[in-house]
Design a protein around this nucleic acid. Sequence first.
DNA 1: AGGATTTTGAGACTCGTTCTCAAAATGCCG
DNA 2: CGGCATTTTGAGAACGAGTCTCAAAATCCT
Lengths: 127, 127
Amino acid sequence: METEYETRPREAIARILRAEPRFLSAAELCARLEESGTPVSRATVYRTLERLAAKGEAALRLNDRGEATFMSCDNGHHHHAICRSCGRVEDVACGALDTFVDRLRSLHGFQLDDHSLEFHGKCRSCV
Amino acid sequence: METEYETRPREAIARILRAEPRFLSAAELCARLEESGTPVSRATVYRTLERLAAKGEAALRLNDRGEATFMSCDNGHHHHAICRSCGRVEDVACGALDTFVDRLRSLHGFQLDDHSLEFHGKCRSCV
DNA sequence: AGGATTTTGAGACTCGTTCTCAAAATGCCG
DNA sequence: CGGCATTTTGAGAACGAGTCTCAAAATCCT
Ligand SMILES: [Zn+2]
Ligand SMILES: [Zn+2]
Ligand SMILES: [Zn+2]
Ligand SMILES: [Zn+2]
């Protein structure tokens, strides 16, 4: 069998993630866990984050230093607007680019000054 | 003063990058340099890539394992379509999303099956 | 060639991430 | 309640990409 246990570390990690609209690194998560009186080892933090990401309950993002960061994130396909100064993340539903920008300005009050866009698929010679 | 020298390692690296429409990691670059009879140390490879990226002659990208990869890339703002199987990169000029997708299909013959989009700027509370 | 300056390479080092494995926790069943 | 099989955890070793150091080599200028 392969049952799943509900453990203190897992709950503590999930609680912190759910309360923060930001991508947190494993190190930051460790620090917060320590502060909140529920220290969790690095190994467990990584294992739990990997598990959450696999279940689609957390989004994984590599920051500009290549470190893995995680954020609580519901399943559906959408994109992220990330604040340069505080890191706050606004979820933006997928649609045409213009709609995106409009929504960012009006709905989220987000001042857009840069974006990165990457397509993935198969090139001509790979069908 | 601070003159720049034209050296064998730098030329070898630039030559490989210019011939490959793919993002290459420092390790891959080292291997190719070795093969082509011009071994270059890791340190120099990293220094040269950093230099090229700073001059806007190479694009930097973190792959899904967080490793830095580089590709010869001209200055202007544009986006990338990356083949899932061979890694070939098609440059796509910036414009509305619909135009992007059309261009990918017709001009590049690129079969799009996923994309990632990230906005950067300032959130409401950071002005 | 001579010499000031820049560049290189070998290897030590850093640090994020993964691995190992014995100890602890969990849930179940008698 | 105790055992008990199973899962999870933690401390620390191991790993690997990237950076740093500094003496030796290369480059350019005269
Ligand atoms: Zn902000
Ligand atoms: Zn989308
Ligand atoms: Zn391809
Ligand atoms: Zn653009």
